[in-house]
Nucleic acid binder design. Structure first.
Lengths: 251, 251
DNA sequence: GCAGTTATGGTATAAGTGACTAAAATAGTG
DNA sequence: CACTATTTTAGTCACTTATACCATAACTGC
């Protein structure tokens, strides 16, 4: 990355033409189906050119008076009903030629750039209800089976997946999509579904997490099928805040 | 963060007005003055309204055909001559009302939003030469002494500082701004200036870094003032790549 | 030669990691 | 009801890493 300075030719007599921008948000929305051990991504079918008939990440253009984050929450709310989620800004993709609607050889005044402020979200699967508004297709795709998407959305998705893994390892976002009380098995399953089973065995995962001290045992137990009943825990946000600055790694 | 879905009122008969955007990049440019043990930030004086006479982060509007990253490199190159640096996209600030040029009560068609794709850079201090193009003021400010900046630039700076600390801990960006060969003392000084001395003592810092195996001893030594001469090391990018996936933490 | 300074290479103790084992508490089955 | 399969829970043990600290080496300046 060093020494990458660009030498742009100067036009001292003519002002360089500025680009005009359309600004949208695109969301990488993940959910973990713990029953089937699948990491899912929300995609929607496009019904307009360009990329008519392609799957794409749900997106929208930003409205007047609306913050970028608000726009991201809005497009999410248009596609799924869900109350428990985590959302944050991901990255801004804005190179020229990323959208075919940008006129390739039009005069300067018609040069329009499409900027995508991508966001990343993780939503609670059990609760999430897809909104099928008539014609528009909408679906959860297992990450490994996501087809070719419109625009540069596969790249955005790949970026979002990286972020998901990082966030899960270093932040307590799991508790935003787990029920209020949960077993350590629930938590472990969420982690393995996203990160793969290689990262830690269950026994060590348990020991490490309990030692961190922000999981409080509710005293209640739950029995789901065979096996010894599991203790139900609750995430203690206050206890977590106290440990926040320390180099805490779950994995 | 859970349950933060916004309920936006629907206007089924009138299309909601989209915002028009001016898109710029603003750079948080850091440099470490190892002689004086100071972490510096580059600021430029504004000579136009709004915020006339305020210091600000160097920024520019994006031109036609120019990528966001190119724009960031361009504005950096306009302010300092430097060959060794690290630069990456930081965050996009784009809420309404972040720029007073946005008309507060103008009709919808005149609602203009200013979007800032902020970038974060670390440059080699010894080599960096500020470009004083006539009137415009430009200066390195020690981080702790940065005054009130224009727009939301203090917020952007604060975000950039967080990123700097993270990057330094988890990525080899230090080697982008160190000379080709350097002593472990040089490296340690860079780390302490940015992160504070608390993170590790010199002896343990040395042991950990050498054990990682991507610092190759050149065999040469350097003597700078009093004390035993220090070995000169070189960063071995290939050896680093092999260890890249492992949870490698310098600190 | 001596004091001061910086680099280097340790040690000892504490803490954490990773692989593994065993017991406890349930459901289902014949 | 005894038995097995299953799941949670609670460890052990060898090994690695972290933290604080120390001793020595190799220079400069006086």
């Amino acid at each position: 990355m060093a020494g990458k300075l660009q030498k742009t030719p100067d036009h001292p007599l003519s002002k360089p033409a500025l680009a005009d921008f359309k600004v949208g948000v695109d969301n990488v929305i993940f959910s973990v189906d713990t029953d089937q051990n699948r990491l899912l991504v929300l995609v929607v079918m496009r019904h307009e050119a360009p990329y008519l008939g392609y799957w794409s990440l749900p997106g929208t253009l930003v409205r007047q008076g609306e913050s970028l984050e608000d726009a991201a929450y809005r497009v999410l709310a248009e596609k799924i009903r869900v109350n428990n989620l985590y959302l944050e800004q991901l990255y801004t993709f804005g190179g020229p030629r990323r959208d075919p609607r940008e006129a390739p050889h039009a005069p300067p005044t018609f040069d329009v750039r499409y900027l995508s402020i991508s966001h990343f979200a993780l939503v609670r699967f059990a609760e999430a209800e897809l909104i099928a508004d008539g014609v528009s297709g909408i679906a959860w795709y297992p990450l490994a089976q996501v087809p070719q998407l419109a625009f540069d959305h596969n790249q955005i998705l790949s970026y979002g997946y990286q972020r998901l893994r990082n966030k899960l390892e270093y932040s307590p976002i799991a508790f935003d999509v787990l029920p209020d009380t949960f077993t350590l098995g629930d938590l472990y399953q969420l982690y393995t579904t996203v990160l793969g089973e290689a990262f830690s065995d269950y026994s060590n995962f348990r020991a490490r997490l309990l030692k961190l001290g922000f999981l409080q045992d509710t005293g209640r137990k739950t029995s789901r099928g065979a096996g010894r009943p599991a203790s139900l825990y609750r995430f203690d946000a206050e206890a977590f805040e106290l440990l926040k600055d320390k180099p805490m790694v779950f994995i």
